[in-house]
Design a protein around this nucleic acid. Structure first.
Length: 890
DNA sequence: CTAGGGTTAG
């Protein structure tokens, strides 16, 4: 036409531009620009219809800034111009610009049309500007446009995306006319927000209105089936889609594959995947999820490599899926490699990718790495914050976790259920009952009163804080109790010292037919270990074997601890030697076990073997080794190990390690050195460190250092009864009775009460408990008589009663001395009376054993020819043939 | 010139 010199007019260009817009061919910027130039050459640039269509063509091909230029150059605009520009912004993900344009438009007094409202509502929905959406709803009402199908459809989507499903349903119900999109909008909304049943029901209604489902309907319904695990229904939809010829749609393909994966039908999924064109990245991503949920990292990695081999780029869906699998199977090395690829491909500020990376590093105890990723993120996102918070809590940095939780809220990020649950668990970790309850209240206000994760966290909070009744109440409130709910009780009680309660719950769980997992066993075994209830421990062991957990490293680890704590090193060693895959925890458990039993050289030998095999020791390992050195009296070696912590392994010694060194020096009598060591510590010494020094001073009868240490301790912890007891013992061993009595009076003045001594022994399935001078036992008379008899027999082999440790000797003269017989003597006497001859006497005591009892038991072990094992608050004492494994230092 | 669909993280 142009070659023939026929002048095109505005109608010509309008039709040409329309044809270009309708065409499925993509136009390059040059193409559109040339048409634009032609329009200008013919002087038609000011024509409304031409400009409007030009705006549209530019933005349809992705050149929205040129559209904007055209729009801004227009002298006169009509309603279509505004709409073209609005939808141009929407098509190019420029929702904010669209909203600003709408506001400009209203300022100019342009009357909004249904076209305008449907576009701008859709824009608000996409950027989750729900408040704006509600305002728009009001305007629509005012302009009487609610009856417009497009507008109301957009409103249905708006309300379902912001979670106001009731409002969405209301708009839906009030619509005079509904089309397929109306149904699709609500179906997809219901399905996305977890109301999958309702979505499927609505589909029935849709069919009754004789509306045919299209690709969108089917895709939404498949999503609903996937989250319900409704494989049958999904298959029906699949065959419908095939018959209706919808299966070539790439989104339907994705939904179908997702259905099979989510329903764990990996075989069908794999077949379907192979039958597809495989040019669709989504399909690869879904396969990654499938293999990930089976824990198959090999296949996952195959998929991950092959997709790249075929030229498909991993995207923000790909990385989280494969990284999550790396995390769950513990493949940190591969995870780190993928991390570097993530950085290279520019995903370093993507919240999805980074949240998994944070989780991965946090779970592998690399909090530094996790923090680095976290603080680089700029998007305000709950999940990345929660990952970091949970990361802190997992490694006992509860305070840091709670600080971050507070900070998150200060940033204006609203916590969700998992955030609240993590914060409550962190409170449980530091037994911050009040704070935990406050956060719980907050979660209720936020509408999470029925949330399962929060309910479980609450159980653990109460159990961990020793609130037995509240814990059970929280437990009963949960209608679908899972293993995590049960574990909350078992581990919470075990960790707060209510071992019997924990074991009770463990038995009940078994009776209820609930399947225990590794966490359950871990907590139950540690409860049994702490009650030295070897019998129940062995029963739990049997159940671990029966449920097939005995191959697990963690199972063997807790069993080693169990047997060691119950005093049976033979069983502990057996478990250690027989286990297949030892990790650092296994070595630590065995080393600590040896050490607690006074087998110092065995502990040290094992430590050397561990290092030789290249297993990296950690803080716990060193605690065991240092205390072993102390038991054997290896001063130089102990100090050498202490220095190697930092030098060889970069471990910063903690207060417990300093206390161990003080113990090593103190036991060997190097009290000056010990004092100097404490005074030059790079961190502030705590009561434990000073108490260790004071105990050594008592043994070595050093009044100067002992007195100073005691006074520092009294300043540090004036309410701790142990200090008063130790200090008065120091005076007693030196015969300084005045000072001793003063100390006692000071304690009385300050209202400090000594924890009453208690001992336990198990005889015939029953735990028998004894207090000092306790006469409550049914066999009390027999027991006291037998103690008397034992006293006579031990005197024959040289036992001399040592009253230094007896607390209240002023009263001693006034009352029956029998009233001061310590609980361990009673328990041992009872054990000797009741247990068969060959069985060793196992007693446990809540406080440290006193000097007199220690001597007495040594002698009793000889005269009664019996092995006696006493576990006191500090360690194990194995008495046999007049000797104790602690070599009289504890 | 307007509305609706699939895959990811704690």
């Amino acid at each position: 036409m142009i070659r023939e010199n026929v002048n095109p007019d505005e109608c010509t260009f309008s039709e040409v531009l329309q044809a270009c817009s309708d065409s499925k061919v993509a136009f390059s910027f040059r193409d559109v620009e040339q048409i634009h130039a032609l329009i200008m050459r013919y002087g038609l640039g000011s024509k409304l219809i031409v400009s409007n269509r030009l705006i549209d063509l530019y933005s349809k091909n992705g050149f929205v800034d040129s559209s904007k230029q055209v729009f801004e150059d227009m002298v006169v605009r009509d309603s279509s111009s505004w709409v073209a520009m609005l939808s141009g912004f929407c098509k190019n993900k420029r929702e904010e610009d669209a909203i600003l344009l709408y506001k400009d438009m209203r300022k100019f007094g342009v009357i909004p049309t249904p076209y305008v409202f449907s576009s701008v509502i859709s824009a608000s929905t996409k950027i989750e500007a729900f408040n704006l959406g509600e305002q728009l709803h009001a305007s629509i009402y005012k302009w009487g446009l609610l009856s417009n199908v497009f507008v109301s459809n957009a409103l249905v989507t708006l309300y379902s995306r912001c979670g106001y499903l009731t409002l969405a349903e209301q708009v839906f119900a009030e619509m005079p006319q509904k089309d397929g999109v109306t149904y699709n909008s609500l179906i997809s909304g219901l399905s996305l927000k977890g109301f999958s049943d309702k979505a499927l029901q609505l589909f029935e209604k849709m069919q009754l209105s004789s509306l045919k489902p299209d690709c969108v309907t089917i895709a939404s319904l498949l999503g609903a089936c996937a989250s319900l695990g409704a494989l049958q229904k999904g298959r029906q939809l699949h065959s419908y889609a095939t018959k209706a010829g919808l299966c070539s749609d790439s989104i339907i393909e994705g939904s179908l594959l997702d259905l099979y994966v989510k329903c764990s039908d990996i075989e069908t999924a794999h077949k379907f995947f192979l039958g597809s064109q495989m040019e669709n990245t989504v399909l690869w991503n879904v396969m990654l999820v499938g293999y990930g949920q089976m824990g198959d990292l090999n296949e996952s990695f195959q998929i991950f490599s092959q997709m790249q081999f075929k030229g498909l780029q991993p995207n923000q869906y790909t990385y989280p899926s494969i990284l999550r699998t790396c995390t769950s199977v513990g493949a940190l090395y591969l995870g780190e490699q993928i991390h570097s690829q993530v950085l290279k491909n520019g995903f370093w500020k993507n919240v999805y990718v980074c949240s998994v990376l944070i989780d991965m590093y946090a779970k592998h105890e690399k909090l530094d790495a996790a923090e680095k990723i976290f603080w680089r993120l700029t998007e305000e996102d709950v999940v990345s914050w929660t990952s970091m918070i949970a990361g802190y809590a997992q490694h006992d940095f509860f305070v840091e976790g709670l600080k971050l939780f507070r900070k998150m809220q200060d940033h204006g990020i609203r916590s969700d259920n998992i955030g609240f649950a993590s914060a409550i668990s962190a409170c449980a970790g530091i037994q911050a009952l009040d704070q935990g309850q406050q956060i719980h209240a907050q979660s209720v206000v936020s509408g999470y009163s029925l949330d399962h994760s929060i309910g479980n966290a609450l159980i653990f909070l109460y159990a961990r804080c020793g609130r037995i009744q509240d814990a059970y109440a929280a437990f009963d409130k949960i209608d679908t109790k899972d293993i995590i709910s049960w574990n909350g009780l078992v581990s919470g009680f075990a960790q707060s010292g209510f071992y019997e309660e924990a074991l009770k719950v463990f038995s009940r769980l078994h009776e209820d037919g609930v399947e225990a997992n590794m966490f359950t066993y871990g907590s139950a075994v540690s409860a049994a270990a702490n009650t030295t209830n070897i019998k129940q421990g062995k029963q739990i062991h049997a159940r671990i074997v029966k449920t097939g957990y005995n191959g697990e490293t963690e199972a063997s680890n807790v069993l080693i601890t169990l047997y060691a704590k119950c005093g049976s090193l033979v069983d502990a060693r057996k478990e250690f030697l027989e286990m297949q895959n030892k990790n650092d925890v296994s070595w630590n458990a065995m080393i600590t076990g040896y050490s607690q039993h006074g087998c110092g050289s065995e502990a040290i030998q094992l430590f050397e073997e561990m290092r030789h095999l290249g297993v990296k020791p950690n803080h716990v390992t060193y605690l065991g080794v240092l205390s072993a050195c102390s038991h054997v009296g290896l001063v130089d070696k102990g100090l050498c190990y202490f220095n190697s912590m930092n030098k060889d392994y970069g471990l910063m010694p903690k207060l417990e390690h300093y206390a161990s060194v003080v113990d090593i020096l103190g036991r060997a009598g190097h009290l000056q050195r010990a004092m100097k060591f404490v005074e030059t510590m790079p961190i502030e010494p705590d009561a434990m460190v000073w108490r260790t020094l004071l105990s050594a001073c008592i043994v070595h009868k050093n009044i100067e250092i002992g007195e100073e240490t005691g006074h520092r301790l009294l300043e540090l912890e004036p309410q701790d009864s142990a200090t008063y007891v130790l200090l008065s013992n120091l005076y007693a061993v030196l015969g300084r009775w005045d000072s001793r009595n003063q100390t006692r009076l000071l304690m009385k003045d300050r209202g400090v009460k000594k924890e009453p001594g208690r001992s336990w022994i198990e005889v015939k399935n029953t735990i028998h408990a004894f207090f000092v001078g306790d006469r409550l036992h049914p066999l009390a008379n027999g027991i006291y008589d037998f103690v008397e008899e034992l006293n006579k027999r031990v005197v024959m082999i040289g036992y001399v009663q040592d009253n230094n440790s007896l607390w209240n000797d002023l009263e001693l003269g006034q009352k029956d001395p029998i009233a001061y017989i310590h609980s361990e003597k009673l328990a041992i006497a009872f054990g000797l009376l009741s247990l068969p001859e060959m069985i060793p006497i196992r007693v446990m005591k809540n406080l440290r054993i006193c000097n007199d009892c220690h001597n007495w038991i040594k002698c009793v072990s000889k005269v009664a020819d019996r092995a006696i094992v006493v576990r006191d608050a500090y360690r194990f004492h194995h008495f046999a043939d007049g000797e104790c494994s602690c070599n009289d230092f504890w």
